[in-house]
Each structure stands twice: as structure tokens, then as C-alpha cells.
């Protein structure tokens, strides 16, 4: 397999452009910290929810290209969506990474590029981490960032 099949331009571009953003605090913000213990990808994700929508997403992300690209894309895809919509997107993304059919690939936007990672199963966890973090911060209400 050629390296360009995995590390595609879209993925590389997102990873290079990813910029950590100061974590949020104040009302209606939630925060979670997750990592992949085997490789050391680390993510602190904070979100602000306003009128039922994810209004702001901020993070400190440290890790590999696949993880960084997945984080940047997740931000772009999820921003301004409702918790229900994001839960659905997370589910679709997981399905895609498990090589299952999904109903509306378009909704995942550039996250579709990460489908390439399916060919490199050991790295799927890197792509999943930001989505897992987003799901948990919205549904398990980990730490209130105030």
C-alpha cells in the first residue's frame, strides 16, 4: 500500500493547519480529557452549548497526523449542530470506520477522507478519539468547565 493512500492531501492539510485553542470556561461549557494509552494521542476538548447547539469548540490536541486531522475535521463538521445531530454524526462516523454502510455520507463532510484509515486498522483509534471525546462530553456531561 502506498503512503499517499493513507496520508492523503486532505488529511495532511487539516493536520498541518490544526491550531490548539484556549480551553473555554464560563457558563454552559463542558470539558473532557481523553487519551489513547497505547500511543499517547492526547485531547482536552471543551465545548459551549447555547440554545441547544454546540456554539464553540476548543481543544488542546497533541498527537499524530491522523488524530490531529480527525480533530480539526470533527470541529468543522460538528460546529453549530445540535447534540442530537452530533450524536448521529458520531454514530455515522463510527459505522464508517467499522466498514458499515452509512445513510448520508455527505453529512460527514471532509471526515469522509478518514475512511482511508480503515485500511490501516491499527490507527483507527487515532481517528476515533476526537469523536469519542465529543460524544462523551455531550452525553456524559463529564466536567463542567466553570
Amino acid at each position: 500500500m502506498d503512503i499517499n493512500e493513507i496520508y492523503q492531501r486532505t488529511i495532511m492539510d487539516y493536520a498541518v493547519r490544526l491550531k490548539n485553542k484556549p480551553l473555554l470556561n464560563g457558563q454552559d461549557t463542558y470539558q473532557i480529557s481523553l487519551e489513547n494509552p497505547t500511543c499517547g494521542d492526547k485531547l482536552i476538548l471543551s465545548v459551549q452549548i447555547k440554545s441547544g447547539l454546540v456554539h464553540v469548540i476548543a481543544y488542546q490536541a497533541d498527537g499524530c497526523v491522523i488524530f490531529k486531522a480527525a480533530t480539526a475535521i470533527m470541529e468543522k463538521v460538528c460546529l453549530k449542530h445540535s447534540v442530537t445531530e452530533i450524536n448521529h454524526l458520531e454514530n455515522q462516523f463510527s459505522q464508517m470506520m467499522m466498514q458499515q454502510e452509512i445513510d448520508n455520507p455527505k453529512a460527514l463532510g471532509d471526515a469522509i477522507a478518514l475512511q482511508a484509515i480503515v485500511k490501516l486498522p491499527v490507527r483507527i483509534k487515532c481517528a476515533m478519539l476526537p469523536w469519542k471525546a465529543m460524544y462523551q462530553v455531550l452525553n456524559e456531561g463529564e466536567v463542567d468547565g466553570r
Binding site: I6, C39, G40, G63, C64, V65, I66, L120
Partner: peptide
């Protein structure tokens, strides 16, 4: 400037098996 896991995957794609990560020695890292 390149994460260890990306190096390991790039090598894997060229048929070379190495290990990347903490190597079960996090305090050393």
C-alpha cells in the same frame, strides 16, 4: 516534527515492523 506513530505507520506501509509509543515506560518518556 513527526509523531512516532506516523513514522511507524509510514514504515509499516513499506513493510518494516517497528514499535511506536511509550513502550510501557511512560515515566521515561
Amino acid at each position: 516534527g513527526v509523531h512516532a506513530h506516523d513514522v511507524a505507520s509510514a514504515l509499516d506501509l513499506r513493510g518494516i515492523a517497528v514499535r511506536a509509543g511509550y513502550h510501557c515506560a511512560e515515566p521515561l518518556m
